[in-house]
Design a protein around this nucleic acid. Sequence first.
DNA 1: AGACTGCCCTGGCGGC
DNA 2: TGCCGCCAGGGCAGTC
Length: 284
Amino acid sequence: VPELPEVETVRRGLNQATLGQIIQGGEVLLPRTIAYPDAVESFLVGITGQRLTQWHRRGKYLLADLQTTPGESGGWLGVHLRMTGQLLWCDGVRGVSPSRHCRVRLWFDTGKELHFLDQRTFGRLWWVPPTESPDGVISGMGRLGPEPFSDAFSSTYLYQTMGRRRRPIKNALLDQTLVAGIGNIYADEALFLSGIRPTTLCVRIGRQRIIQLHQSILAVLTQSIEAGGTTFSDFRHVDGVNGNYGGVAWVYGRAGEPCRVCSMTIQRIKLAGRSAHYCPNCQR
DNA sequence: AGACTGCCCTGGCGGC
DNA sequence: TGCCGCCAGGGCAGTC
């Protein structure tokens, strides 16, 4: 499940592989993958002939700058991988049918192709025309809270924003309007590292523990980006290679197994419709 | 406004 | 061996 570190890894791969290349055309195999414009044909017409000049990341969204000619914007190509989406940079053989889960394929002037694969079909693509703004067209992006690595996401911000809320801290961490990019895996891992139970109400967490949580969030995200994303998911780099989040999770996916610190059995509960994993001894 | 629930979707797995 | 139900979860619409 791609979260911020996985999306960041994909972004870096795309910036290595695709910059300067011109989209010659494409094929949409699953129309609902295209979130905007409404008509698939408008999407294809919009991106065709455009040069990819930069890939950005905002939360779990990817956004490519497009240029019609040097200095003239051709809008943006937005991508959200959701649960099982993958972007694969491959040697295309025109006319040959791609893999079973391929939803969209784009072909380039060099003969390379960019495939959007997505088993569960939750992933979405947008073409944002130059006359509009990404934050407006990609509504979820417009609502995102600060980036974890930005100055805006300080421990003071976290304390002031979350400190008042009457809801479990785990739910708050998954709320993309409070902080962008954290998903189920890193929320559980950050809460373990800061010794806080996922059920703890935000309002019950003191200043010192919020400072610890802030540090833990940055630590777990940094470590995973350095490792190139997680292994414990079906995440793949743009070249199809698996990630390697330092190898092990502290609690995520370890229900019933002994805590790596104290050997107490890791618990799994349901919060906000998601599974939450924690150590009942280390997290209070 | 804040918080929560159900839904979308497919494939893998446990139980019988 | 086969079928059924459950589970995974990011974002959004709907509701209280």
